[in-house]
Nucleic acid binder design. Structure first.
Lengths: 134, 134
DNA sequence: AGTATCCATACTGTTTTACTATGGAATAAA
DNA sequence: TTTATTCCATAGTAAAACAGTATGGATACT
């Protein structure tokens, strides 16, 4: 059981790739696909979702492509995942009418959110152990 | 998108219910179903998985039921989830051949494991905010 | 023997996943 | 102005997972 689908992984990988472009030309789908090894057609759908969620802007036509809609320090991993997978984990812990379990799941939920609130610009720092304490 | 299926929620709810029995008689499926409002037939499957993972023992025949296979302080939420959902999140963060993302996902994975390493016996304490720091 | 309980397997309708396919719309370059 | 390039939108699809339901069998207590 994979707790995150490849959509989430792909989405973050694509956004990360775009965020690391040095020239400020828009990045093309085929470039991103080549870098990330995501299928071109599938990637298009994900990028489309990311654009509709206002995380990317697109330029059509020759020399077109995608750019971040905001700077990388204003885009969180959570936003990316939610953009491609739909609204995130609302755990229905209300099973057995147990307040204790409700608290537990709600706490898990908060911790999860905290983990994914890391910004795109901070990703490269995650190689430093325990950088992003929650 | 729910990050945990109802199977996981159900599994934990069932195990928690069993762990809170005061008399030391085995707890019957119908009792657990009544407490948790999980469908009887479906619950049987989940309990069966939990038994096969050696988290529960069963007693057949009249007055039979289920008991914990070990004491509640030796059973983690992670084990329960893995028993009903299959081996947990091995995130394939190896997309785009980016070491940075690999580190990120691996870190997320560790944090997730830490969150779910809480023992069944400790669950009731989760109502105390920030009890189980990771 | 009869009843209560767990056990095993199979079936089912719906949704999600991870794509592929097709063609259209916009824009830049020739 | 044509053509090539790029994104855009929609639909289709095979396989798996989800959340059950259904049926009957095995075991053990009374």
């Amino acid at each position: 059981m994979a707790f995150l689908s490849s959509k989430a992984i792909y989405g973050v990988a694509a956004m990360y790739a775009i965020s690391r472009t040095t020239n400020n030309k828009p990045m093309q789908v085929k470039e991103i696909a080549a870098m990330t090894h995501i299928s071109h057609g599938y990637l298009e759908q994900l990028l489309s979702s990311l654009r509709k969620s206002n995380l990317l802007v697109s330029i059509r036509g020759a020399q077109g492509g995608y750019k971040l809609a905001r700077s990388a320090d204003q885009i969180s991993v959570l936003e990316i995942i939610e953009a491609v997978e739909g609204a995130f984990y609302k755990i229905d812990g209300n099973v057995g009418a147990s307040t204790i379990l409700e608290y537990f799941w709600s706490d898990i939920e908060n911790k999860m959110c905290a983990m994914f609130e890391m910004k795109l610009s901070e990703l490269y720092r995650s190689s430093q152990p325990y950088f992003y304490e929650i």
